[in-house]
């Protein structure tokens, strides 16, 4: 695993590779009508995270919400210089509603880093990433990592409406070329996105693809990877219990090279899988 090795070289782990990191909230502000950015100061173990991994967040208890299990959130920003981690989250239910109440100075207990993240092949020249909604949170650190390693990055961001598109700035700052598409003007149709990517590929060949956040985009990515004979990876989501591969709640059917299907744990065997392994989710 080239990425894993790299990530470890960048920040040495403590005694244990994963921990219940007791982080301090720096800020927790809305970025648009649906999404928030949670920035925390994290201990050393937390800072060993790499793109595609996630943390399991212990959500606070409020008057109305008492989430019992932790909630998985992809690592969106890894800022080792300032010892900070960032999570981009969508407020959907009791866990994320409770997260919303955290303010500067509060403690956030974040178990991680967890799971197997993206494995960018050495020598990759041009990464194309296609993300839908909050799936972008998962891909942003990959853009930064790929750019740092000298690869060109093209990011296609898809959302229902233009004002729900996020992180153009984050991605551009990471060195990515960003293309935004949405459902309202019809530009997000998979066939159109595929054609855009074919044009880009004709100019500067794409040799790695990554996706997250939508089954349709997974299908599109798998198709283009097969068409061009390049590797592609997808970050998968599933309802989780423990986040450490212990309870077997978050399994998805995964197909091996011989076509044999096996239930694999998103939290421990993933969340990142090859686009050819994952059937649907």
């Amino acid at each position: 695993m080239t990425m894993t090795a790299t990530a470890q070289a960048e920040a040495p782990a403590g005694r244990f590779p994963r921990a219940e990191n007791r982080c301090r909230v720096v800020s927790n502000d809305p970025v648009n009508a649906e999404y928030r950015l949670l920035l925390v100061e994290a201990p050393a173990t937390g800072l060993t995270a790499y793109a595609g991994q996630f943390f399991h967040l212990l959500c606070p208890t409020t008057h109305t919400d008492q989430p019992f299990l932790r909630r998985p959130m992809s690592i969106y920003r890894i800022d080792r210089e300032n010892r900070r981690l960032g999570f981009l989250y969508k407020v959907t239910g009791k866990g994320t509603r409770a997260l919303m109440t955290l303010g500067p100075g509060d403690e956030l207990n974040a178990t991680g880093p967890l799971g197997v993240g993206f494995d960018l092949p050495a020598g990759t020249q041009h990464v194309a990433m296609v993300a839908r909604g909050v799936g972008l949170a998962t891909l942003a650190p990959l853009a930064r990592f790929a750019a740092e390693r000298g690869a060109r990055v093209t990011a296609i961001l898809s959302a229902r409406a233009p004002d729900l598109l996020m992180s153009r700035d984050e991605l551009e700052a990471a060195g990515a070329g960003v293309i935004e598409v949405n459902d309202l003007d019809g530009t997000s149709k998979p066939e159109d996105v595929a054609d855009r990517l074919r044009e880009i590929h004709a100019e500067v060949p794409i040799d790695f693809m990554a996706t997250c956040g939508s089954n349709r985009l997974l299908g599109l990515t798998r198709g283009l990877c097969a068409e061009w004979g390049i590797p592609g990876q997808v970050a998968v989501e599933a309802f989780m219990g423990c986040g450490l591969g212990m309870c077997f709640a978050c399994v998805v059917p995964v197909r091996d090279a011989e076509g044999k299907e096996e239930m694999k744990r998103v939290c421990y065997d993933g969340p990142v899988f090859s686009v050819n392994e994952v059937t649907t989710w």
């Binding site: 299990l69 219990g241 309870c247 077997f248 709640a249 978050c250 239930m263």
Partner: peptide, 23 residues
Amino acid sequence: RQGVKPPRVVEYTDATLFSIGIP
């Protein structure tokens, strides 16, 4: 054994209802 069909967990205030099926 592969275990049972997901979803495999439901959450309560201080309990969980799991059905895993002994993979």
